[in-house]
């Protein structure tokens, strides 16, 4: 297998909507959105594809700031945005369908922001 280099373009949060609109105009489809915690910051990746050409853009924010929703451009983005809110606590403004933190009902709030694990303690019997 030859190594295929994937490029990720870092963009400003304020330019995000314009860039995503550009992708949509060119006919790209939204592949996925994901969030990664890097230290205290959060990297948010937006991936697009046109004829198997994979493009990836990234914004980096701190945990307190909000990001604009792209669900006005790609209607289906709401699942990723709600997921990001539920798992990481990233606030997304202007989602077309806002589950208000109820898409994933989890044991603790924003579990992926500070992952914890169940220890070796045995489960409470009955």
């Amino acid at each position: 297998m030859t190594r295929d280099a994937q490029e990720t373009t870092l963009v400003e949060r304020d330019h995000l909507i314009g860039i995503v609109e550009e992708f949509r105009k060119k006919g790209y489809r939204l592949v996925q959105m994901s969030c990664t915690k890097a230290g205290e910051l959060y990297e948010i990746n937006y991936s697009f594809d046109l004829d198997y050409q994979f493009r990836n853009i990234r914004i980096v924010i701190d945990g307190l700031s909000e990001i604009p929703s792209i669900s006005g451009i790609y209607w289906g983005a709401f699942v990723y945005e709600n997921e990001m809110y539920d798992l990481f606590g990233i606030r997304v403004v202007g989602m077309n369908i806002d589950f208000g933190g109820n898409l994933f009902r989890t044991a603790k709030k924003n579990p992926f922001a500070n992952p914890t694990f169940r220890g070796e303690e045995t489960c409470p019997k009955r």
Partner: peptide, 17 residues
């Protein structure tokens, strides 16, 4: 018993819990 997912934060454990 919870199996490989035993340590996941959202898993409580086996059915007998």
């Amino acid at each position: 018993s919870g199996g490989v997912f035993r340590e996941c934060y959202n898993v409580v454990g086996g059915i007998d819990c």
